[in-house]
Structure formats: C-alpha cells, structure tokens
Design a protein around this nucleic acid. Sequence first.
DNA 1: TCTGAAAATGGACCTTT
DNA 2: AAAGGTCCATTTTCAGA
Lengths: 157, 157
Amino acid sequence: MTSPLDGYDLKLLAALQQDARTPQNELGDTVNLSTAAVNRRLKRLSEEGVIERYTAVVSPDALGYGLTIIAMVEVESEQIDQLDATRRAFAACPHVQQCYYVAGEWDFVLLFVVQHMEQYNGLTRELFFGNANVKRFKTLVAMSRDKVGQALPLLPG
Amino acid sequence: MTSPLDGYDLKLLAALQQDARTPQNELGDTVNLSTAAVNRRLKRLSEEGVIERYTAVVSPDALGYGLTIIAMVEVESEQIDQLDATRRAFAACPHVQQCYYVAGEWDFVLLFVVQHMEQYNGLTRELFFGNANVKRFKTLVAMSRDKVGQALPLLPG
DNA sequence: TCTGAAAATGGACCTTT
DNA sequence: AAAGGTCCATTTTCAGA
C-alpha cells in the first residue's frame, strides 16, 4: 500500500506542507528532480494517502472566530455504544475543530472555535449538559494561539 | 483591510477548506459565478489574509506518527520574559503541532505528534524537565483522533 | 462577462539502472 | 520492472478589453 518514502518524497511533503501551491517545476528545482518526476511522485503520494488532502487555511480572526477553547470531558459510561454516540455528537459540531478520545484523567479533549463566550455557552448546553453521558467537563480558554497547524516533522532533526 | 465577506466568499472558503485544488471554473459552477469572478475573489481573499495559506495535509500514520499526545503545563512564573521564552521553546519543537496559552488550571496546552512513547519521553526531558520555568505537567494520550483539522464553521447552521 | 496569453498539470514515450 | 528525463497536449489561472 505505502511504498517507503525516500528523501525526495520527504522534501516534497515538507515543501507542500508549507505551501501547497508551489508549482511543480519550482519543487523540482529545490529537490533536484524534473517537473514530470515531481508530478508522478505527487500523484503517487496522493493515491497512497500519504497526502490526505489539500486545504486552504482560513483565518479565524477574519471570520470573527476570535476565541479558541479547549474542553476536557469525562463521560459516565465507556460502553462502546455510548462512547460512539458521544464521539459522533462531538465530531458533528462544526465548532469542534478537533476531538480526541484520550486515556488519563479525562476521556475527551475538544478544541472549539467560537465567536464569543455566549456561543460557547450554547454549545456546552447542547453538547455537554444535553448529553446524559457527559459526567463533567472543564473549560480552558486560549489567551493566545502560539502555534497552530498539523504539520508533521519531516526533515531530519 | 478586510472588506466584509458575502455569501459567495463564504461558499468559496467552505469549498476550499474541503479541497483547495478545486479548479476555479468548478467553484464558479457551484457558487454561480464566472471563473474570472472566482479568480478575483480568491486573489482578494488571499491578499486580505482571509485565506492564510494553502497546505497539504500529510497522513500522520503514513509517516509513522501514530501517537498524538496532549500535554497540559503549569509554569512557575508568568512574568513576561519567562513566559515568552517558554512559549518560543514549545513552538520551536517540530513535534509540537499546536501550542495554546490558556487561562484556568493550566497555563499551556500542547499537542504533540510522535512515533512512540519513548520519543515523547525525550521531548518531556527536553521541553519540560529541562525548563526551569515548568512547574508541573500532565500527559493525556490520544487513543483515537476522532476529528482533526482547522476548518471553520462557514455556512449558516 | 468574454477572450486570450501565460503558466501549470499530467500523459506519452524514450532512456537509464 | 522501476524511476528519471524530454516533449507535448490539455487544463487552469489570471489579466485586459
């Protein structure tokens, strides 16, 4: 399924993580490969799922989403049906950017993006108070987003 | 700086969040705008910073980054220099995908992506134990990544 | 909105290892 | 076979009328 990635692949991925619109001839210049070779590799990387998708990063501030909130949630029952239902409910909310099921003191960690506190309030009613399987939750308000993204470490180091 | 966004803009952003490689003529079809109009809008959205950048999402699993870890950190001193130094140290680590400075019981929330526990161990030594300003930290290991991304809610609903 | 030039993508085909 | 390179057709972008 996934043929092993060589140095070219890693460099290409690193470049595309930074700017997915770098033209293939430029990529070729920086990694020392012809445009066609780059093209083939990108095609392969997409087909194999190494590149999951291409996306535009939209500025939260430009859209008024000035608040990022991190919520930790403990559930009542970790029975699989209950858990899946809860998981799905969380993931389905557009304001939930990220949802992780975790081991430790808490069961879920959620990242919300909202316009103002009241909006978050509404969401807690809907997702937490409105869900019988949610036992308790804790809210952390982000005062600054020092680093965001999903870039992976790709180059040696 | 940021002219108000109309319904066309929002639809375009929504489409590009999903797939940044959708050609402009297709975008035009779905939002009912000519290719040129779409082109102009995208140019404007980029220039105004509404679209921050275009990026390729790389599969963590394909690269062996099977572990996502969430760490909460409390610092000794919230004095600004100390804080900034700590913040910078966290953000500079390639394994730190996200770093938020938060209000509440903790001061920082970090999202790590690593290949295995040992790697995380090394990072805690480097970033936490090796930083005199870190008072304590707590680790949550993600058992599943139910939702990831940075997509913003854009369409009414 | 339409038209056309320039740029970028992606396939065909050949060569090298 | 597997992967690179060159060349060319098609698609896409993007600016001017």
